[in-house]
């Protein structure tokens, strides 16, 4: 692993990233601003740690910057740039987004907003149990509308059938499994950033909102919902941070699953504490909540990952001791 970046430098970078994300709501502008701040160098010098601070900032600011393309491309051993995007697995999946059918490759996956401006897309496909990597012209995937529950977000679904002669196979450098792990750890940090923002909003609302002559924060039912959210966030955070020192793919999957569970539960509890205002479009809460739904589905979700993890344990007949003192 590369040298870890000094804590003071990290704090500065984190602040810079958050400010840039807050100022550039458009995904393309945000990508450019982060490249200007040295995001690519950081990812090269300290991939896991760099992704952790950038994605944590993504979560807190709810920015739609397309940094996941860079994390995955970098883990696959490619030189990252704003001209390169990646096709991600279909919702809730960790398997490659494409498979070969005769002379064509059938794609069912997710892409970020960067697909609209990129020249090249990286496409992983599965055939006969092994994963092949290829590049295609990004225009083949362009033009899909950014719809869905979170139109302001970066991700949209893409289905396509690409003729075999449009595909340039490339030599695998990084493996697909390590790319999945890198994406899962980064997304775990994003989900925890989303969760911490939602918890902070709900906490402040509970303190400010008065009913029956007292702050609703004084009611135990509300206190316990917020406390449960914090406990799930801290447990998931510890595992996500642990991934900095341990590249085990199983730990990465656990981090993503725990972070998804923490963020989804926090979203539910925070919305209940916010009550009526949290159901409106006037309050910002719904943006974070919808982004959480979307990010949870990327590279395996809190619903799907426990099944994958359990199957892995069953195939090994035992549970590995992942966390060492």
């Amino acid at each position: 692993m590369s040298e870890l970046v000094e804590a003071a430098d990290l704090a500065l970078l984190a602040n810079g990233f958050e400010a840039a994300m807050a100022e550039a709501p458009d995904p393309g502008e945000a990508d450019q601003a982060l490249y200007d701040l040295g995001w690519a160098d950081l990812l090269d010098a300290a991939p896991t740690q760099g992704a952790a601070i950038a994605f944590s900032a993504l979560g807190k600011t709810n920015s739609a910057a397309s940094l996941l393309d860079d994390v995955v491309a970098h883990a696959l051993g490619m030189d990252i740039s704003l001209a390169l995007c990646v096709v991600f697995p279909a919702p809730h999946q960790t398997i490659p987004p494409a498979c070969r059918h005769g002379n064509a490759v059938v794609v069912d996956g997710l892409v970020s907003a960067r697909v609209e401006s990129a020249a090249t897309a990286v496409l992983a496909s599965e055939a006969e149990g092994s994963v092949g990597l290829a590049t295609i012209d990004a225009t083949l995937l362009q033009g899909s509308a950014a719809g869905g529950v979170d139109p302001g977000g970066a991700f949209r679904r893409v289905t396509a059938e690409i003729p075999a002669d449009a595909i340039s196979l490339m030599a695998n450098q990084g493996t697909w499994d390590s790319a999945v792990a890198a994406a899962q750890v980064a997304l775990a940090h994003q989900l925890l950033g989303e969760a911490r923002w939602m918890l902070a909003e709900a906490r402040q609302h509970a303190i400010d909102r008065v009913q029956f002559g007292r702050a609703v924060a004084s009611f135990q039912a509300i206190r316990h919902k917020l406390a449960e959210s914090l406990v799930l966030i801290e447990g998931a955070e510890s595992v996500a941070q642990g991934c900095l020192h341990d590249p085990d793919p199983l730990l990465a999957a656990l981090a993503k699953s725990l972070a998804g569970q923490a963020a989804l539960t926090t979203a539910t509890h925070a919305q209940q504490v916010l009550a009526g205002i949290g159901f409106t479009a006037e309050h910002q809460f719904h943006r974070w909540m919808k982004r959480t739904l979307v990010i949870d589905t990327l590279f395996g979700s809190a619903g799907s990952l426990p099944i994958e993890i359990g199957n892995k344990l069953l195939s090994q007949d035992s549970a590995p001791r992942l966390i060492q003192l």
Binding site: G235, V239, G242, L258, I307, E308, I309, G310, N311, L314
Partner: peptide
């Protein structure tokens, strides 16, 4: 698989913390 995966992730969250 789900029940085992969920129990394992609770255990790992605790051990990590």
């Amino acid at each position: 698989a789900r029940a085992l995966g969920q129990a394992f992730q609770s255990l790992v969250a605790f051990r990590s913390r």
